[in-house]
Amino acid sequence: MVERYVAAKTVEEALEALSGGDATVVAGGTDVMPQSQAGRLKLGRTLVNIRRVAALSGLALTGDEINIGPLTTVADLNEHDLIRQHLPVLADAADKFASPQIRNMGTIGGNVCNASPAGDLLVPLLLLNAEVELRSSNGRRRMKLQDFFAGPGKSHKKPGELLTAILAPLPKAGFTARFEKFGTRPALDISTVSVGIAGVMAYGGLQEVRVAFGAVAPTPMRGPATEHALEGKKLDDAAIEAAAQAAMQEVKPISDVRATDWYRRELVHNLVRKVLQDVARG
């Protein structure tokens, strides 16, 4: 039962509202509203609307990282020049995200905090080595995104904390990243499986390889075994097959109404192969 509604205008106001405990933060509402209506999410006693906190909006290049305000909508990510220029893989994932209406409402901060294993922006953010900034009335801390997730719908954000920034380092020259989401249509599909592969192209192969998967484990995950299989290897058929095999073995999918675990593994294998063939072709 909601007893207090706070339409915060500053981070401080939001943190003050959170400090009382038992609070639910809402930004775009695209996750919180349907989940609470369906009874899957119990709203706290305080509802904190952060949509009007100016400091949480906007995108900026500061030094060697891009600072993405958590209120940045998915549509903004898809269209913003900074993202298109420096982090095109994130723009690409944003284009495949839900529907235009949800892209207009939903925020990157919400997608991160919702911590869905199938969150569409999370795989590219993992590829980009993104970090999150969390603030509370006690201070602020930064955390690698890959350490942020704790389970389906669960993160290591503490109850009094607010996500205040998503930070992505500017990729090196030669960095390439691909995001492949399985589906029968351009968007409006909850991921059955998604695959991301990134690295710096050199000598016909990838260096500093990063691999990430969505919807195949309790959280979005990095794929260290696949990364290892690829690191520095020339992308020939054997290397690609070895990486695809490593990928299908290191994911931990479940069977649900969308797919069986068997099929998810097969998809991971085939999508990794497809992406790598694509990368090898240049």
Partner: peptide, 23 residues
């Protein structure tokens, strides 16, 4: 419609997929 022991597992457009314009 996916049923398990008589219960519908996908009672929403999220997982019951109608065709959309691009298809």
């Amino acid at each position: 419609m996916v049923f398990k022991q008589g219960k519908l597992l996908n009672p929403a457009f999220r997982d019951y997929k109608l065709m959309t314009a691009p298809e």
